[in-house]
């Protein structure tokens, strides 16, 4: 690249006086430093490794060893969520997607969708900060391996449910952090068992994906997404 500031002629980069001596000094230094370095690395061949093998040879789950404020995968306790949409608004990446509607029969507000795209989430913690009801929080779960990219979207509402009308103090106690997610994580791999992910379907963006009937359940039909069986459903019990 063309330097913008002309560098001054640098005298210190010139070889020092006594160039011949410097030449042989370099050779000596090269050999002796290599010798020193080799002896250090060789001594490590006789030292106990510092790392612990994960996950076989540890005393307790890593989740329990992490600090309380660790920001792992997000989870929502739907029993405490009032669908105030504060988290959705503050999320800089828009990874939270909430939809709600009024049930025409009962007249109550119902939340039809609470999706968090953990592939998009950058774990900044703004949503957890802004949640007034202690519903949305980071857990200490970090092992969220999935087999297809669309499984990275966590569906916290599987079928439409009433939004709680209780005050914060009257709400049920926050479920143990991570307990909701832990129920969902084993289901990651079999959320959409009928679907085979192909790179072409993924790369070809939304248009062909809409055509395929087996593609990701789209926000357009949230009510119909009650497909997963009861065993698979990670939805927490309905609030009274």
């Amino acid at each position: 690249m063309v330097p913008t500031v002309p560098p001054a002629v640098s005298p210190h980069r010139r070889p020092p006086r006594g160039t011949v001596r410097a030449y042989f000094r370099n050779i000596r230094l090269a050999l002796s430093t290599a010798f020193d370095g080799m002896s250090v690395t060789m001594s490590y061949m006789f030292r106990r490794p510092l790392t612990i093998q994960y996950p076989d040879k540890i005393d307790k789950p890593v989740q329990e060893m992490l600090p309380e404020s660790y920001r792992g995968v997000l989870e929502v306790d739907m029993d405490r969520c009032t669908v105030c949409l504060q988290c959705q608004k503050i999320c800089p990446l828009g990874c939270i997607n909430i939809e709600s509607c009024k049930n025409p029969e009962t007249g109550n507000r119902e939340v039809t969708k609470f999706d968090i795209d953990i592939g998009l989430c950058m774990y900044c913690g703004l949503c957890a900060e802004t949640c007034n009801f202690d519903a949305l929080d980071h857990t200490r779960e970090f092992e969220a391996t999935v087999t297809t990219p669309d499984q990275m979207i966590l569906h916290f509402v599987e079928k439409p449910r009433e939004v709680t009308k209780l005050k914060a103090a009257e709400m049920p106690v926050r479920k143990h952090k991570g307990s909701i997610l832990q129920k969902m994580i084993p289901a990651f791999g079999r959320r959409h068992p009928q679907e085979v992910w192909t790179p072409t379907a993924y790369a070809a963006a939304p248009v062909p994906a809409l055509k395929a009937p087996t593609a990701t359940p789209k926000p357009a039909a949230p009510v119909a997404s009650a497909a997963p069986s009861a065993a698979d459903s990670p939805t927490p019990e309905q609030a009274p």
Partner: peptide, 30 residues
């Protein structure tokens, strides 16, 4: 010989510290 001595010296320099901190012996042959 100098190499072996140097390796041993490097190892010994850390051995006691490790024992004090970890309560285990640093020695763990290849």
């Amino acid at each position: 010989g100098a190499y072996i001595r140097k390796v041993r010296a490097t190892f010994m320099a850390d051995r006691d510290n490790y024992k004090k901190m970890e309560g285990r012996d640093l020695w763990y042959p290849p």
